[in-house]
Amino acid sequence: MRRLAREFTKGIIERNPVFALLLGLCPVLAVTTSLDNALGMGLSSTFVLVCANVLVSIIRGAVPRKVRIPCFIVVIASFVTLVELFLQAFSPDLFDSLGIFVPLIVVNCVILGRVEAFGSRNPVHLAFFDGLGMGIGFTLSLALIGFVREVAGAGSVWGYSLIEGYEPALILALPPGAFLTIGLLLGLFRLRGRKTRGRAL
């Protein structure tokens, strides 16, 4: 039980895929112009991560080591196709604004990394919680960046405008703003991490 809880919580802060491991950066920067895009991307990736981790864990005994990476890629790509068809049918607006980053979930290194490092070596229940924890960590990071960029870049949250007459800092909604936001947040987290733990990260 304690093991389960540990596998679940490690991905959220301590080994957060975005801010601690710097993985899966392309969608993190590309789709975080607003909070709803960021959440949509995060949840889609979480779904793929959990399903792929569980399925790989189930078939881990049957996959020869030499061809494991292509096998994992096929598993991941199948779930990505599911997500793609689902979004196309039920949320076409989100599908359009995420663009090619929906099919590109297949090359998200967080997913292949977890599947290879965890799913292919651990039993199903652990793989499930590991995937869920990492996915939530990924989603939260995306949501944080999306929140900062939407508030500063458009003066709104979830499409609702916050302050009357706020002149939005447009640069944060444009590509440079993505690099700026993640660079500053990463630096701030490291500063805090060093203060609380007394060592540089």
Binding site: P176, G177, F179, L180, I182, G183, L184, G187, R190
Partner: peptide
């Protein structure tokens, strides 16, 4: 972090 700021 500084690499990201440079990229910005």
């Amino acid at each position: 972090p500084i690499a990201f700021l440079t990229a910005a």
